[in-house]
Design a binder for these strands. Sequence first.
DNA 1: TGTAAGATAACATAAACGTGGTATAATTAC
DNA 2: GTAATTATACCACGTTTATGTTATCTTACA
Lengths: 222, 222
Amino acid sequence: MTVYSKKKSQDNMDIISVAIVEDNHDIRTAMELLINGSDGYACIGAFNNAETAVEQIPSLLPNVVLMDFNLPGGMNGIECIARLKGEYPDMHFMMLTVYEDDDKIFQALEAGASGYILKKTPPSELLSAIRDLHEGGSPMSSQIARRVVAYFQKQAKPNPALEALTSREKEILDQLSKGFLYKEIASNLFISIETVRRHVHNIYEKLHVRSRTDAVNKYYNR
Amino acid sequence: MTVYSKKKSQDNMDIISVAIVEDNHDIRTAMELLINGSDGYACIGAFNNAETAVEQIPSLLPNVVLMDFNLPGGMNGIECIARLKGEYPDMHFMMLTVYEDDDKIFQALEAGASGYILKKTPPSELLSAIRDLHEGGSPMSSQIARRVVAYFQKQAKPNPALEALTSREKEILDQLSKGFLYKEIASNLFISIETVRRHVHNIYEKLHVRSRTDAVNKYYNR
DNA sequence: TGTAAGATAACATAAACGTGGTATAATTAC
DNA sequence: GTAATTATACCACGTTTATGTTATCTTACA
């Protein structure tokens, strides 16, 4: 059996294959030229719309895809990533954007983008970001990182309405959230089922809800 | 009324006040010397344990706190951040760590840390990370950013068990998750309550659960 | 054209939940 | 040292949810 080695650049690094999805002709061409003109990188596809990209990329299987947000036609960059990422989980996607404060950051990340950089990023940095992404990093500016961290922290912090609960009530609510029956909660906490009822009743009053599901939704800040 | 201007460095930048919480004497002293020896930065406190830090930092009110993970005594760096961040939400915390692959990243972020860098970070980078943090960024390596993004994506993607549900069943489950009564769901979807029952029953069978709360927990990937 | 899957609907029964009232220790706060 | 809070407990009643069985109609598809 013959083992073929991967293409190597002059520096003996693996060549990173890149595809570009960007409707602006000038930007697309400039990136294509940059990538093909740089040792260790090869642009193996460039598309001006998401539909063609979704159709062609499965036969090209690039290591990295650079994706614009807004694309002509029915599909935007986020949906394009979602479709491809579902089929090819190991493919790495880098979102290209004009603004750092775009709320679509989160949609892009949820869809499967791992890197997130500005279009105005200097050529050398774009190349190193591509390599970084290929090697398992998530290149992004610290401004964008802060927004991701803030989102993370927001999800983590509990609803302030829960502070009105006593510690025992929080304990009961936690059991409720896990789906235990009253009798199971009673046995888990070594109290009578009637006491569980009473606690639940008090919890509902404090949270202004009338069902377990509503209480649990408040517990999880929804 | 006299207005006092903030201290300015030679470059006319505001001076960033920094506190350090780190039990290793050599590292702590080295950082203190670096910060005090650099124009635009001032180390206004250095502590070798969390308890003293929690006690003293409120009277110092530094712009930025550099925090070690492991500290002697009962309190670790994460709890120290949580306590202080609760009282001073505008204070910025930078986690100092030896390893990038620490699972405590997420605990630190939840507690309120915004930056996350390695102890071996070169002096000049440490200083720019401090400034970056002070100015609203979240300095972190792209390796750490990837882990945060991955965590984010994991939370976002729905439980694959839900794919066994028909679209109508997903609709019902969504209504269940919002806490609607069967009769409300029936009226919202213009079907009889008996049909709601049937759908719920089928959903439970497919998800292998026996209660609304368990179904909703699966719906939200918990 | 027949069959499988999905959405619709009804009925019966039992289990679980939600609401109201009442009460008693124990602890905490003032 | 008294008042307020918290955790505990019981009962009664009505509502909601969960399970089991059966049946009709439509759509997809082989």
